[in-house]
Design a protein around this nucleic acid. Sequence first.
DNA 1: AGGGAGCGGAATAACGTTATCTTTGGCAAG
DNA 2: CTTGCCAAAGATAACGTTATTCCGCTCCCT
Lengths: 344, 344
Amino acid sequence: MGQTPAGNGRPRRPTMVDVAREAGVALRTVSRVVNNDPTVGPAYVAKVEAAIAALNFRPDERARQLRLGVTGTIGAAVRRIAEVNPALAAIEQTARATGLRLLASSTDFDESRERDILVSMCRQRLDGIIVEPFGNSHGYLEPELAAGMPMVSMDRPMSGISVDCVMSDNAAGIGTAFHHLHRHGHRRIGYIGDSELVFSGRERAAAFRAALVAHGQSVAGLVHPGDITAERVAADLDTVLHGPDPATALVTGNLDTTIAVLRVLGPQAASRLAIVGFDEVPLADLVRPALTVVAQDTATIGRTAVELLSARIADPSRPVQTVIVPVELKVRGSGEVPPHAIDS
Amino acid sequence: MGQTPAGNGRPRRPTMVDVAREAGVALRTVSRVVNNDPTVGPAYVAKVEAAIAALNFRPDERARQLRLGVTGTIGAAVRRIAEVNPALAAIEQTARATGLRLLASSTDFDESRERDILVSMCRQRLDGIIVEPFGNSHGYLEPELAAGMPMVSMDRPMSGISVDCVMSDNAAGIGTAFHHLHRHGHRRIGYIGDSELVFSGRERAAAFRAALVAHGQSVAGLVHPGDITAERVAADLDTVLHGPDPATALVTGNLDTTIAVLRVLGPQAASRLAIVGFDEVPLADLVRPALTVVAQDTATIGRTAVELLSARIADPSRPVQTVIVPVELKVRGSGEVPPHAIDS
DNA sequence: AGGGAGCGGAATAACGTTATCTTTGGCAAG
DNA sequence: CTTGCCAAAGATAACGTTATTCCGCTCCCT
């Protein structure tokens, strides 16, 4: 008996074979009608469409994909879905405009989970993958790359393998923030940011040190990368503000740091130091003080990621490319507090 | 010649047949090894695993799914991915814990797009679908339901078809907000919220009218549902604040309304009226005034959605169920301003 | 020592679609 | 009237996996 392989309670859905029998035509003809092949006579089209409607037939995308070899879907393995993630929004929009479906998953800042997701995407033979890498060893993807799986990394490069990459100009962003504060008269500027175990944390801390050196200042006591916990940030903020030579201004290295700093400082933040944050802050206009930030061009990043991926899908042998996207300073108030306005 | 069906430049990936040939065993044996079937002798396991490593074989999930009839994946069609969406985060977490993959897409507040996504998910024969419905006619899903596609709606019921549903207790939430302001001495309380064309907008406006009536007050001039644009909200706020009998307190019907109201009022919001918002506000502790809100229990909503879906997958004939999740008042300041503190 | 149980592996048939190839029918040209 | 020939529809073989069936081998018991 032709029972369903998974013998659960689900009723078997009609297939093209059923439609063909119902319409009294060949299987191939049903396929042609479903795919709008113009070489089918109108009488046959009508018969087949009637049968499709009568049986409520819906083609099985899995079988189609298996046969075609192409899925029409790209994957996005991002660190956080369901959080404000404008780059992901841009990816989705661009993918849609390109006629690609998008399969998004959160790696959730977990290396093993990232691995699971990427391997699963490869097993599904997606047409390509965009990944916001988290872990530090992506060597296991080497065979996939060799097998021709198109891949693009976003926000940071992948480690151990060479793939197309799109990311912000971290160094320029930090330089701009520093310069902005310096131009408003600040001479002691501190930095609190993400851990240097993370690529962007490393790049931004390094850029900040370089800015200090370029202005002939000592690095000592001013640069504080590390894990982003309320305690660590509070402690480093205390060092920066109440050391022997207190800072009058601060650059925060990413969104989470900015939020943590604002929480520690409380409503009087603006009277205690000038702040320029890296990353746009959601509801920035409702937060007090209104924050001056170096904003990443997330729309361009997301769009570029899809474009790079599409280009590689079209031509797997093209040279690997890294795109650096400029950042933009958004002046809103917190970065323009002059040094003499700071309580000491 | 056995060429790839899609004759593009991608190299053909090795299949189980190739592995079997390489290892000198039967196809079925490779399948058993891949699926950790214990009835394979250790010598064979070693041979097969060596061949798999040598060829970089990865099983094709599409073929597996086609053969098995089950995908191990559920779909989530939500209005907005990549925005703060704690319910989606809970769905993802629960799905992961249940061993289900999640395919998330944004309907983007577009009825035709919602339809595309849902039809596409059905064609992919996902094991089940969670949908945050947007449109007003879901009759086209009737055949899918009849064919046994498990479906759960979240946040609002679907129109025209009967599926499991989980949503917040909108009426109780509005009642709580009203009562809270009333208890703090306010006697003229206004409401600005989403359009009554939308289910939750309708429920909340109705609940607010009911609260007014229950307190023996006139509805006239106080209840303002509508599209959420800066202009409309500003105009209605003006009516509420500067009418013949001005309100001293306001309930906002959802997050977007709350934000729009705060933008219009500016930093002096708290000195002009007391506010209780529906929906939790991101970075609520950094926004001034700190907002008193009626928060939805998004974690429970997301988790329940997956649980309802799993239950229906397990037993397609179980009765359709609607789960109402309680809401919670979060007191933070903006809702406790007494009437006499309001500038007139 | 012979026979049957039991186990592990091989051959083959699905799953539902699309593509290749073949067949049929109708019509115009020689 | 026959010969192509084009259009349109049918038969059949993939795609890569898993499940079913079957067969040969070993081992143990009588």
